[in-house]
């Protein structure tokens, strides 16, 4: 599974360790996030620092995870590479997802 998880002060931090969040990984990603959320976490940060490519299937998987969480303010993204930012803008999902430049910034926002 290309997903690492850790918990910091009750906040789930998931790091995607695959360089691609694409059709080949999208289903496993959704299942992995769902599995982590079943442990009772209500707030999470997704660290995308290692993702340099995302396609529409990967974006759809992210949206599915957001629907499961229910509120973009409780599922923050960080370290998002320019091609992924570009995909957010092309699909207008930049109006949906909240992106922070670092894990620390995202954690601080969730603690506030």
């Amino acid at each position: 599974m290309n997903l690492q998880d850790k918990t910091i002060e009750g906040i789930l931090v998931l790091t995607i360790t695959s360089p691609q969040l694409d059709y080949a990984f999208a289903e496993d990603f959704k299942l992995g996030v769902a599995d982590c959320l079943r442990r009772g976490h209500e707030r999470l940060v997704i660290d995308m620092s290692q993702v340099n490519f995302m396609d529409s299937s990967g974006l759809g998987a992210l949206v599915s995870c957001l629907k499961r969480v229910g509120d973009p303010k409780r599922m923050l993204l960080c370290n998002v590479a320019p091609p992924v930012v570009s995909l957010f803008k092309l699909t207008r999902m930049d109006q949906v997802f909240i992106v922070y430049p670092s894990e620390q910034d995202a954690l601080a926002a969730l603690r506030a």
Binding site: S56, L59, G60, V63, L66, K67, G70, D71, T91, M93
Partner: peptide
């Protein structure tokens, strides 16, 4: 959030 599209973007 619940009405966001998850497909049909390609």
């Amino acid at each position: 959030i619940q009405s966001l599209p998850v497909g049909g973007m390609g």
